[in-house]
Amino acid sequence: MSESVLFYLFSFLAVLAGLSVVMQRSPIASALSLVVCFFALAADYALLDAHFVAVVQVLVYAGAIMVLFIFVIMLLNIREPGPTPFGLISRRGLLGIGVAALLGVGLIAGLDGLVHRPAPELPEGYGTIHNIGEQLFSDRYLLPFEAVSLLLTVGMIGAVVLAKREV
């Protein structure tokens, strides 16, 4: 099977799972759909030669972040919402779908202006840990990298302080 057939297959799966995230009645079903979507996107990244990003997607998104989500959903033990859980047919629902459809159509219509050019020859080892690590620790991205580490520390402390019963 060629790469593009696989890409379309996984993209279709990702869009289907994304639709399911938005339409599901219960949060836990939404979360599990989101995991499927993340795995499909990881496959897409791998097909686009982004091997490191694909692995990080599975480890960080499908692993860490979604486990956090599912923990919180189960911790709160939220009862099923009322008779119209979607709220899609309400005035706000129709408005939201309209705005999103406009945005999506606009974004896709903008693709017409793309200049198609032949894909460049990718260098040896493109998208591997070695390649990305060299970029990440070069002068270009070193400061943002350190800033992200600070941000993660602040986020972690903030989450603990917020969720603690008494500070």
Partner: peptide
């Protein structure tokens, strides 16, 4: 056969629009 840029951006746009639908319409 490699994947072009347009299909990638189209999938990206569709997923983004789905996210917007979720943010604007869901109550949870």
């Amino acid at each position: 056969e490699a994947v072009g840029l347009s299909p990638v951006l189209a999938v990206s746009a569709v997923l983004f629009a789905l996210g917007v639908v979720g943010v604007l319409t869901r109550k949870n």
